[in-house]
């Protein structure tokens, strides 16, 4: 059973890690935050699995903390998106020297 739970933890971690491709691609801030959010929930699941697998009960409390504060970063994100509203139309005007792969992906609304 322990092996199965550890394997499941690795699987969940690997899966949500795959979701981090969305972090790379964007295109918007909201999409990037979604990837982080998925990582958060997956991390909570992986922690619970690890906690039961290794028999250390306190690990579940780490998961509890993560679940409690995961909402927090997203609240910050939402507030952050609204703040520079109407003033952030400067991206893309700068002479970007090297490959500007992310320059045009910022959604500065």
């Amino acid at each position: 059973m322990t092996e199965f739970l550890l394997g499941a933890a690795a699987f969940v971690l690997g899966t949500v890690a795959l979701g981090l491709v969305r972090l790379l691609r964007g295109p918007g801030h909201a999409d990037r935050m979604l990837a982080a959010q998925l990582l958060g929930t997956g991390g909570v699941a992986a922690l619970l699995l690890l906690g039961v697998a290794t028999g250390v009960g306190a690990i579940a409390e780490v998961a509890l903390l993560l679940a409690l504060l995961a909402a927090f970063a997203s609240v910050a994100f939402v507030s952050g998106v609204h703040r520079p509203e109407g003033s952030g139309t400067t991206s893309g005007t700068a002479p970007s020297a090297a490959s500007s792969q992310n320059e045009n992906k910022r959604d500065s609304k």
Binding site: P27, G28, K105, R106, D107, S108
Partner: peptide
Amino acid sequence: PARDAVSSHD
């Protein structure tokens, strides 16, 4: 659509 709103305003 959300994606257009995101990319067209840059």
